[in-house]
Structure formats: structure tokens, C-alpha cells
């Protein structure tokens, strides 16, 4: 897939800088992502990948810079705003509440309410949520026997499946996956890559973070390399091999990018 630069990016970050106290986690980072495109975001541990996606989702607020969705400059007051704008995020550190049921987790932050007065009083429609959770997960290819089960009763891989399922089920424009193949075996990882590909087919913009370079090379259209909070390379995947990508990440072959 080629990048049509005249198209409006679904999501654009401009000159993002972020500090945690005195630590500068992101420095002047600018990226664009388009519909039907998978971006690989790679970098060493601590390079700033998770920090960047938390700016995208509104968990972190950048010290400076702009977040632009569909050409409109946005300001996230909380992750609620980014979710409402169709951006779904799978967090590296689990974004699930282990003591809640699978269904409750799928609907966390957007609970279905009962109809009528009870709904206005804040009553949740648990039965409808459990039912729709099953359907939503099934729609993205995940079948779980009983959604009433709490997440704490699932294996690590099963939890990851629920988290991925939730992100994909809700994503309207952009889906951000921070190390989704964590906890997963080879076979399950392959399944996740298939999920990513089909998300692209559906016209979503996917941002995929992983330390598994073969996975990144296999599934992405473009790769952005972060090092010490800066973008050091942003190029089509076809320009990389595992070796050159590794070199760019570690900074051992600076010349590759020029």
C-alpha cells in the first residue's frame, strides 16, 4: 500500500514534547497515519513508544504540540474524548479490570444502560452487555465461552485476546496496539497479526508497537523508529530489513536512513 500524501491523515501528531518531571520522554515528535495503513512503531526499551501512544489516547497530555484528527485540531481532556473520536488503544500494561467480567470490561467506560427511567438513573443493562460482548468479540473473531467470567480467571493470552477484541470492536478510525503479542505463543501471535491485517482491510488506521521485528516487517506498511524520545526514521517498510531496522533502532548504522 502506498502513502497518498495528498490525503488527509486520520491522525496526525505535530511537534509533540512530553516530560515526566525532568525526564524528557518525547522530543518534537511528528507522525501521520492514514486510513487503511498499518504503521509500525519501534524502538528500544524506554524509547518513548508507550508515552507516545498515551498522548494519542489522552492518558498523557503533551507539554507542547498538537493532536489532529481528520484535519481538526483536538484536545483530549481524558481518554474518554479520544474514545469518542473513534480511537481505540490496547495498552501494554493491561487496560483490563481483572475483577470485572469479560462483558463488563468490553463495555468499560461505555456501559449500556437500561431503557427508560432506570437508565437515566444510571442502571446498567448487564444482560444486554454480556450478550453484545459475545457478539462483538465474535465479530472480530474471538469466541469466549462465558463472558460473565471475570478477567482474573483467564490466562494471560486469553486476557490479551479480550483486550485486543475490545480495541478492535470499538475502533472507528484508529487502533493503537502496544505490544499486543505480549504473553502470546507463536501460533497466537500469528493470529494477532491476522487480526491486524483484517483491521487494515476494513479501512482502519493501525499503529502497531512491537519488539518482534519480523512481525513488524510482515504486517506494517510504514515504520517509524523512535530513539530516546525522537523520531529517527520514518519510511516505508519495504526499505527495511531486520538487520537495517535493528541498526536504526540501536543507532549503530546512522547512515541507513539518509
Amino acid at each position: 500500500m502506498t502513502i497518498a500524501s495528498e490525503r488527509t491523515p486520520v491522525l496526525e501528531l505535530r511537534n509533540i514534547t512530553l516530560h515526566y518531571g525532568s525526564v524528557e520522554a518525547l522530543h518534537d515528535v511528528s507522525i501521520k497515519s492514514y486510513a487503511g495503513e498499518v504503521i509500525g512503531l519501534v524502538g528500544d526499551n524506554g524509547a518513548g513508544k508507550s508515552s507516545l501512544i498515551k498522548v494519542i489516547s489522552g492518558v498523557n497530555t503533551a507539554d507542547s504540540g498538537e493532536v489532529i484528527v481528520d484535519g481538526v485540531r483536538r484536545h483530549w481532556r481524558s481518554p474518554h474524548d479520544s474514545m469518542a473520536a473513534g480511537i481505540e488503544t490496547l495498552y501494554q500494561d493491561s487496560g483490563l479490570a481483572p475483577d470485572l467480567s469479560i462483558g463488563s470490561n468490553i463495555f468499560l467506560g461505555r456501559e449500556k444502560r437500561r431503557s427508560g427511567l432506570l437508565g437515566r438513573l444510571g442502571f446498567v443493562d448487564q444482560r444486554a452487555m454480556e450478550k453484545e460482548a459475545l457478539e462483538q468479540l465474535a465479530r472480530v473473531g474471538i469466541t469466549i465461552p462465558a463472558t460473565q467470567r471475570t478477567v482474573s480467571e483467564l490466562s494471560g493470552g486469553q486476557r490479551q485476546a479480550v483486550a485486543i477484541g475490545r480495541a478492535i470492536a470499538w475502533a472507528k478510525h484508529v487502533i493503537v496496539l502496544d505490544e499486543p503479542t505480549n504473553h502470546l505463543g507463536a501460533r497466537q501471535s500469528a493470529e494477532v497479526l491476522n487480526v491486524i491485517k483484517s483491521a487494515r482491510e476494513q479501512g482502519l488506521s493501525v499503529i502497531f508497537i512491537s519488539h518482534s521485528l519480523p512481525h513488524v516487517l510482515e504486517v506494517t506498511d510504514r515504520i517509524i523508529v523512535l530513539r530516546l524520545g525522537r523520531v529517527v526514521r520514518d519510511a516505508p517498510t519495504s526499505e527495511f530489513t531486520v538487520e537495517s531496522l535493528l541498526g536504526t533502532i540501536t543507532g549503530l548504522n546512522e547512515s541507513t536512513g539518509s
Binding site: 489516547s57 492518558v59 481524558s78 481518554p79 474518554h80 474524548d81 474514545m83 469518542a84 488503544t89 495498552y91 500494561d93 493491561s94 487496560g95 483490563l96 479490570a97 481483572p98 475483577d99 470485572l100 463488563s104 470490561n105 468499560l108 467506560g109 461505555r110
Partner: peptide, 14 residues
């Protein structure tokens, strides 16, 4: 329940 179970998850869920 969500906040007590995983505060980050609750915040990230908006």
C-alpha cells in the same frame, strides 16, 4: 469496582 480493580484501566477507559 473498575477503579479498585485497576485504576489505570479505569482511567484509560475514560
Amino acid at each position: 469496582f473498575a477503579i479498585g480493580s485497576n485504576e489505570f484501566a479505569a482511567r484509560a477507559a475514560g
